[in-house]
Simulated assay, not measured.
Amino acid sequence: MKKVVFISLFTLLYFTVSRASSVDTALTYSAVMKKNIKAVVIKPDGYSVSQKYPVVYLLHGYGGHQDDWIKTAPVIKTLADIYKFIIVCPDGNVSSWYFDSPVDPAWKYETYVAVELVKYIDDKYSTIQDRSGRAITGLSMGGHGALYLAFRHQDTFGAAGSMSGGVDIRPFPLNWNIADRLGKYADQPKRWDDNTVINLTNLLTPNSLALIIDCGSEDFFYNVNTKLHTKLLDMNIPHEFISRPGGHTWEYWGNAIQYQSLFFDKFFKKAAN
């Protein structure tokens, strides 16, 4: 009996596209935090200043740094080549949750990513300097961060995604140093309510953002993601929701980023027409 081998679209693209993206480590400066912060910048094959490129901001998770994606899921270099966009992976510190912390003024990662970093990338690279050419996504803490920033900065980002995102932080009051950024949940419940993604959906209107949300069915964030999905359905907010068997793992995220990149490419092309 002959064995039938199925090859995915992404596998075919991986082996047929010339993988010649270039990787920079940019040293950016945050005026609001008064320090230098690194970011990995991936430019697609054939990058030229005569062309304007869309940008995908890709956020790491808790305990991570700017090198996590490029080292653990190097497929992102191929995705930059396939879709001809720039990918930016900033250092969000190990536990920023991408807030501007009301507790510690040294942690202002909302302002850094959504304002300072975007300006730096637009100044230094040949980008589409408009929300029609910007998307943001991330994993876990970064999935929370991507939706949090996109919901609050819709003038900056036109599309957003989340992979295994902590989209409601309130069920986890003792985890991942969130209390260090917001204060203890028992003492500051309003801060937690005001800074959790699922409570920011009031900022959305139908089609104000192109949204894609992905979470594995064995992930400890699965329940909060399905609740966000249901809430968006109830509000008639169009979005894509994907769930497959899988947990809170790089194997899952390495797969998820491929679907998210395809989604963002469709958004960029539609916005350009």
Results as ranks from 00 to 15, higher is better:
K38W: 01
A39R: 00
W97R: 00
H60Q: 11
Y98H: 06
F241R: 02
D67F: 08
V88K: 05
P171N: 07
A256G: 05
F6S: 14
T111I: 03
K3S: 11
S217C: 05
R134H: 07
L182W: 12
T137F: 03
M33Q: 13
G143M: 09
T16G: 04
P173F: 06
V113A: 08
N199A: 08
A210V: 10
Y62I: 10
W253S: 02
L200R: 03
K184H: 12
L12D: 11
P171K: 11
L211C: 05
L174F: 15
Y14W: 14
A114Q: 04
I87N: 01
Y252D: 05
D194A: 15
T28Y: 11
R19W: 11
A20D: 10
A179E: 15
K119M: 04
I169T: 15
L12E: 14
A80M: 07
T78Y: 01
H248R: 09
W192E: 01
I121N: 04
W97T: 00
N199E: 14
F267N: 01
Y47K: 12
Y62M: 08
D100R: 02
V41A: 04
K190R: 14
R170S: 03
M1I: 09
V103L: 04
A114R: 02
G138I: 14
D155H: 08
H153M: 10
I242N: 11
D194C: 10
V49W: 05
P238M: 12
R191Q: 13
N273R: 14
F15M: 07
V115I: 14
F99M: 01
I212T: 11
S140N: 11
I82C: 02
I213D: 01
G247V: 10
I198M: 07
G158P: 10
L27Y: 07
A179Q: 11
D219S: 11
K52C: 03
R244I: 14
L13C: 02
L139V: 15
G133T: 13
G166N: 13
D168F: 10
C215I: 10
L27F: 09
S101A: 06
Y112A: 00
L139S: 02
W250C: 01
L149Q: 06
A31P: 08
K84S: 13
R181N: 12
N177G: 07
G254I: 07
H144C: 11
K266W: 09
Y14K: 15
S30C: 06
V41G: 03
L12H: 12
L182Y: 06
L59R: 00
K38T: 09
L232F: 13
S48W: 09
I198Q: 02
Q51C: 06
I7T: 15
Q154L: 13
L232Q: 05
G143C: 13
Q154V: 12
V40G: 01
I128E: 12
G158L: 14
Q154N: 10
A114G: 09
Y47I: 06
E116Q: 05
P171S: 08
G46I: 06
L209I: 11
N175T: 08
I212F: 09
T226R: 11
C89H: 00
G63Q: 09
S243M: 06
I212E: 07
I82Y: 01
Y185L: 15
